[in-house]
Nucleic acid binder design. Structure first.
Lengths: 334, 334
DNA sequence: ATGAAAGCGCTAACAG
DNA sequence: CTGTTAGCGCTTTCAT
């Protein structure tokens, strides 16, 4: 490395402690010596070794963020917000990706813990009690988002189920007679935590039951595009309720190729309200999962927990789970 | 924290060194003691303190990545590739964002250096000799991408200029008589390093000169959408050459609202070939900046430099800059 | 107002 | 094969 406090001490003819006092601004020190030390430090381009500091302080003023990847606007947006808030509080953010790999996720978390992150925001692919214990063993605040790992862990999300139910109701009110639930992602299981998608599925099923005459159908694997034409061409007025905007866009693209367009020939809704929709016509009906609000809430919660932990307090279990409102985004496709 | 090697030593009735030997697998140690120590370590859920290890080793097996943000597919894709390669080599990746803030970028880099990252990949908003010296003062390998900071620094990119020239040529060959260079981003300067966009501008200007009869026009600030209708409706056949797909999409959207569509009413090309284009019709003509290749090359270069540095060797200056080929992506809008 | 000494948790050099 | 010692660079008592 470069120069150390020891070097500075020697250069200034003082002790390391005095150097530290000058640098940290804490403790009594003669203004002159302080200025002298600071000047020399600047001249010598002194930079504190954060590893050493973290080691002795037992904390790093850094929070970790572990997500699937960063390719989806969904995570990207979240990360921006978390990072901004962290910076505002004088913290740093450390992003790590797990790429849907359960073991990788574990390793990334272990690593972050071993680097003494002060807290972590996690979008997990794991779930269950065993994993919950693992997370707790890290012995630092972990706030989960997107996928629920287990009850009792800090968790921030929107009411996915209710959102899907509203989509069904709206389709029903528009006179659609047959609803197709499209979620190819569910075929990737059971290795991955599909909490979100499952919630949406549950919401769909419950809502369909409430409307007796409604027919239901499902597209639950990656060959889903092969069946959409057939489904859209049936007599009954059909709407596709997709659990992600991407699926909806792919279906629209496919059906466009077959000469079919919403809302005339079929109805379709997405989920997530990704930015791409701005450029797509007709405007896709979708549901905003309030990324900003979720991210902001999650990071605030994390800092609450960090402060509580630093103060030696226990977190209030009732405050750990926060379900935020979703927002229905109207469009032209239903 | 949790348990330390000291605790393990006590629990096993051996010295810390022996514990270390068991844990690291290095040095002579009796198989029985090793097994015993490893067992206890597992039982006690021992995890090495990476800060302490980094401190003594002087390296962390982690590389840093500093980019604008993570919202653009461009960075996201790069980050994925860099992360994958880092993991493959047993390294970790640490992502930090500067959000186009020059000071922030400096701070993020300082921080990474102070955490003893082994190397950094940087998409900078700074430039110039002074900043080059700053980067060098960090005393660790830094590979720059996207924006060139200064000559002599490791830099990976595509031939932006040549790409733009090809776009001009193609427009010319298609019979367009007037070319509009659209790059609102240039208005954000001069605080930011617009190397890429400037390169594209230069390419445009040079190419236009080579085709004498070609008329040229420029949209260089964020009010650009206000003028596109007027420009598109002129007599001469007009094509907009945009320095980013987003600008092109916005123009198309705007003109669509005016009843104008490419390629009948005007021509348009983008830059970057972002994923969103898949869902947009008509298919935008664009230029792929080979993100994957750039990222892969950059990360490989970085590891070369890291190894060279570890071996105490000097890097070959000739190998520092790598310009990769771009790819012209045909479509329906020109 | 300054300094000496101890310690964070780990690794490395050198003895035994 | 195992242990002792020292040190990474910083912070934190406790003296002076």
């Amino acid at each position: 490395m470069g120069i150390t406090t020891k070097d500075l001490a020697q250069l200034c003819g003082v002790s390391r402690t005095t150097v530290h006092r000058a640098l940290s601004g804490e403790g009594r020190i003669h203004p002159d010596t302080r200025e002298r030390i600071l000047r020399v430090a600047r001249e010598q381009d002194y930079r504190p070794d954060l590893l050493a500091r973290g080691l002795v302080k037992g904390k790093t003023s850094t929070i970790g963020v572990v997500v699937l990847d960063v390719k989806s606007e969904y995570f990207a947006e979240k990360i921006s917000i978390i990072g901004a808030e962290a910076n505002r509080r004088g913290y740093c953010m450390n992003i790590m990706l797990h790429g849907n790999d359960k073991e990788m996720e574990r390793n990334q978390l272990l690593r972050l813990a071993s680097y003494r992150m002060d807290g972590i925001i996690l979008s997990s692919v794991n779930e269950g009690e065993e994993y919950k214990r693992f997370l707790e063993s890290l012995d630092l605040p972990v706030v989960t988002v997107d996928n629920k790992v287990a009850d009792g862990l800090p968790f921030v999300s929107i009411d996915e189920k209710e959102a899907m139910k509203e989509a069904v109701s709206r389709a029903w009110n528009k006179g659609y007679e047959r609803l197709v639930f499209a979620c190819p992602a569910l075929a990737d299981g059971p290795n991955i935590n599909f909490y979100v998608h499952l919630q949406r599925l549950e919401g769909f099923q419950e809502a369909v039951k409430e409307h007796g005459e409604l027919q239901e159908d499902y597209l639950l694997d990656w060959t889903y595009l092969e069946r959409v034409e057939e489904l859209a061409k049936q007599e009954k007025r059909t709407a596709f309720l997709c659990t992600a905007d991407e699926f909806a866009l792919d279906i629209m693209k496919k059906l466009y190729g077959c000469g079919l367009e919403p809302p005339e020939d079929y109805g379709i809704t997405g989920f997530d309200n990704i930015d791409t929709l701005e450029y797509v016509s007709p405007r896709l009906v979708t549901i905003s999962n309030s990324v900003n609000a979720v991210a902001q809430t999650a990071v605030n919660l994390l800092f609450d927990l960090i402060e509580k932990k630093a103060a030696g307090e226990e977190a209030d279990p009732g405050e750990l789970t926060r379900i935020l409102p979703y927002e229905f985004i109207p469009g032209e496709t239903l």
